[in-house]
Design a binder for these strands. Structure first.
Lengths: 106, 106
DNA sequence: TTAGTTAGTTACTTTATGTAAGTAATTATA
DNA sequence: TATAATTACTTACATAAAGTAACTAACTAA
């Protein structure tokens, strides 16, 4: 069959972004560092999966985890340079959604 | 908690794009109409899921399905205007992947 | 008549995600 | 001193999504 080869780097990027919740996590972190519970409550994500996603994104050097030994302990997640570089993608998704998706799509 | 509200249209868009395979299907269709078996063999997707995704994208008016009653029958999938408008997103993902992802990431 | 082609569908297995309860470290309250 | 509260998780189990492989329908070609 018509074997159009897909660029492996593009494929990798899509593999990251097409994980459930990843886009929304990045969207939230683009507006500044966030704590675990803030992320958890702002989207419908479960703690189990949020924990998993943050670890994956940390391993990919997209997200940085910082511990502040206060009381109770504060842990902040923020974007690395690599993570901040995703902003144009998120912006384009926002633009498309505003132009092409109806209000109240349920 | 810090309840930053997420734009429902952005959330909807992310819900579409974060479905496994959807990004790669769109990427393939951006280079022109494709047949079912061409899409199937160019990515690692199974027929079961490809069929499901194409139906979803058709219902969202992102993909158009056309039947050519030849022999054997030819069915072509292509992007609608709404679908073509996703190009800037795909382009930004390509850019990011080229800048930030290593070659041969395995 | 048997095999081949395309575009699927169906039944079943494996993987991913959701749910809810539990843990560790610390401080606050009764 | 015991109990509760908070944050950032983890664990065990249930459900949903995706993968696998075989099957179907409509047609042609050998």
């Amino acid at each position: 069959m018509n074997q159009s080869i897909i660029c492996p780097r593009f494929e990798k990027a899509m593999g990251i972004l097409s994980q459930r919740w990843t886009g929304l996590i990045l969207y939230q972190l683009l507006s500044g560092p966030k704590r675990f519970c803030a992320l958890e409550s702002s989207m419908g994500i479960s703690g189990r999966v949020l924990s998993e996603r943050l670890k994956d994104l940390e391993n990919l050097d997209i997200v940085k985890r910082e511990v502040f030994p206060e009381t109770p302990v504060r842990i902040e997640y923020s974007l690395t340079e690599k993570g901040k570089a995703l902003q144009p993608i998120i912006k384009e998704i926002e633009k498309w959604s505003q132009t092409w998706l109806p209000i109240e799509p349920n």
